[in-house]
Design a protein around this nucleic acid. Structure first.
Lengths: 213, 213
DNA sequence: AGTTGATTTATTGTATACAAAGTGCTACGA
DNA sequence: TCGTAGCACTTTGTATACAATAAATCAACT
């Protein structure tokens, strides 16, 4: 794996906490490579807004509740649009991909909880796959790009750890509603359901953030 | 000016045409610097989608009519949202900034056409300033980021050279409508006018692209 | 003791050398 | 003539040395 991906992973998973200062030399030592590839990775992460420039060096970006609100609202806007476009442009394979995700999601929910963290990671992965399937079904490369860049944030990653069984079930149901609407070529229905789904996620995160601090 | 900005400028202004292959060494020779800063610039431009990776090296990104449609539709979505948000969050200074742009725009339209290219450059600059003023007025940093990255394309730059006097006048009128709606705290009115403005731009570009080929 | 200036230290910016890997060309054989 | 192996060349990837600059420390002076 190249330097960029490794650093990004560490940030998203929280290994480098928000506010942590990153220096080229430390990263180079840590990843056992020279500064050159580190510099490229940093530049790239900077344009993705995952790290913020300082007068000297960079820190892992910090997001306050206003940021979270804005980011989730943008997700609702963009993914809502993606769902609507998907309902117009989707192929049969797109539908299958979405249904597959939801099937697996359902299976997982019905499985007795073997190991909490492991199970949540799988659910999170399936959730990501479903959302990807939706914006892939929109067949809009530029839209996909913007959604990706708004989604890759540490918070979005952490949020699942706060979900309880009822909330996971609600998520699945909305996924199914979205999938059906896209299959039935109902753009507005698909959009509404997607937005509702994302706003529920937003409120959930905001509530828990508040609770934490 | 640093390497990144210089290369970006060349691409946007069309000095490096779409499809042109760029090699690190040539750029280094051209800008009279070493490959190291060139590499950083390339990485950054790559994440911004202005250049596309090849198995070996990069080319200036090419956009077909479908890309243009998708990009303008995204602009309509994002800038429409920005206008609506601006109508809620704007300060008095934001309003002044917008009005200033429109005043200058109006003056320029009424000025006898001294030198076509020069005049169009100024109009283009004022148009950009107005759009910036709108998304600044939304006071949403993340939204601003996405709009910037969807706007910085060679096409958007060239589009103004196809405008005639009547179309420029229509643009100004819509700018004024947007400005008034934002001032009057009418989100939906602001959004509609902005979207209409951008869709007009889209159709104009698509018509002229068709005509060219 | 506090403030300012100078010296040291930490960190990034740039250039360059070399390694790695892809691309294309040439010559040879079928 | 076509295909392919091998070689040369082009171009990117990485490491490293050194320059430039910002930050921190320390000292001297008030």
């Amino acid at each position: 794996m190249e330097a960029y991906e490794r650093i990004k992973k560490s940030i998203i998973e929280g290994a480098y906490a928000p506010g942590t200062r990153l220096t080229e030399e430390n990263l180079a030592k840590e990843l056992q490579i020279s500064r050159t590839p580190i510099r490229e990775a940093i530049k790239r992460l900077e344009t993705e807004r995952l790290i913020s420039p300082l007068k000297r060096g960079v820190i892992v970006s910090e997001f306050n509740t206003e940021d979270i609100r804005q980011i989730y609202n943008l997700r609702a806007l963009l993914e809502g649009y993606a769902a609507a476009e998907a309902a117009v442009n989707r192929s049969d394979e797109d539908i299958e991909a979405m249904e597959r995700c939801n099937e697996q999601f359902k299976d997982l929910l019905e499985t007795p909880t073997y190991e909490r963290t492991e199970r949540l990671n799988e659910i999170m992965e399936l959730n990501n796959q479903f959302h990807s399937a939706v914006y892939n079904a929109s067949h809009n490369e530029h839209l996909r790009f913007h959604i990706s860049s708004v989604t890759v944030l540490p918070l979005v990653f952490r949020s699942f750890y706060w979900y309880n069984e009822y909330q996971l079930k609600k998520s699945l149901e909305l996924h199914q509603t979205i999938s059906v609407a896209i299959q039935a070529n109902e753009p507005d229905r698909a959009k509404t359901a997607m937005q509702e789904h994302i706003y529920q996620g937003r409120d959930h995160v905001l509530k828990n953030i508040d609770h934490e601090s």
